[in-house]
């Protein structure tokens, strides 16, 4: 790629195009961030009047955030955090166990079951909302944390990820442990899981973001404001009577920032590969 003999105008063209692309991607986010620190009445002014004002607020204010923190938003953050972390905790264990079974054991109907797992994540969630809601109602779980957490624990994509990883661990690890007297559960917990930190990190992140970003299911299953999650709280800024644009942008901004924290915490696992070393 980096050919030192490349003609300068080709280089210029390439970087020029890339810059435009980067601008298109980043600009809406920058605008969002800036809008959240503008006074309410100024938010849409720069849209019709594109110029330096678009980027530099005339007056910097944290009013939008202050209002947000005094309202329902902190509760929504708390709800979302609880729901997302609980889902990650149970989801990683449950899906890893399922992936382990698919990778290591031979049992009747294994291929059909695995096919169903794959189908489950190909299928749009909207297709099962209604039956799922009926089921949740029957359990008496409407408007509860269980309703938000339990249906999201088992995740076909995550099972698939774990299966692929566990299948890539040389069988000798499992067999050596069996000869040494380990039970299958011990092998799962002490051999397979400690080797799969990168997969655990990726899956945990996927489960976390799925819950952090989920909107449709919480609206359906837990409409009570006591159980409102972040995305629902964001949407509540807009309603028939009045639109709170400042609140909308500030809450969206916060949701994005909080949502990136887990990613920043675990990104070092993406670089690490633990599998090397034990095998020749």
């Amino acid at each position: 790629m980096d050919n030192p003999f490349q003609k300068p105008h080709v280089l210029m063209l390439r970087y020029g195009l890339l810059s435009i692309l980067a601008f298109i991607v980043v600009f809406p986010l920058v605008w969002l961030a800036l809008a959240s620190v503008r006074p309410q009445n100024e938010i849409f002014q720069p849209v019709s009047d594109f110029g330096w004002n678009t980027f530099i607020p005339s007056r910097f204010t944290l009013d939008n955030y202050r209002t947000l923190l005094n309202g329902d938003f902190p509760l929504a953050v708390k709800n979302s955090t609880f729901v997302a972390l609980t889902t990650v905790l149970f989801g990683v264990v449950v899906n890893a166990l399922a992936g382990f079974a698919f990778a290591v054991f031979d049992f009747r109907g294994k291929n059909l079951l695995f096919l169903l797992v794959i189908v489950s994540f190909m299928m749009p969630f909207e297709a099962i909302v209604l039956p799922l809601y009926v089921m949740i109602r029957a359990f008496g779980w409407a408007n509860s944390y269980q309703a938000l957490i339990v249906p999201e624990i088992a995740n076909g994509m995550v099972i698939f990820l774990f299966r692929q990883f566990f299948a890539s661990i040389p069988r000798d690890f499992y067999e050596a442990a069996r000869v040494d007297g380990a039970s299958w559960f011990y092998i799962f917990a002490r051999i397979a899981m400690p080797l799969s930190w990168p997969t655990i990190a990726t899956s945990g992140l996927m489960l976390f973001l799925a819950q952090w970003d989920s909107f449709f299911w919480p609206v359906v299953a837990a409409s009570d404001s006591a159980y409102a999650v972040v995305q629902v709280a964001i949407a509540r800024n807009i309603n028939f009577e009045q639109n709170d644009w400042g609140g909308l942008f500030a809450s969206t901004n916060l949701a994005i920032l909080l949502g990136t924290i887990p990613f920043l915490l675990i990104q070092r696992f993406y670089v690490r590969t633990l599998i090397s070393g034990g095998i020749k």
Partner: peptide, 8 residues
Amino acid sequence: FQNYALYP
């Protein structure tokens, strides 16, 4: 084992 299977 042939490839030792030492737990890394």
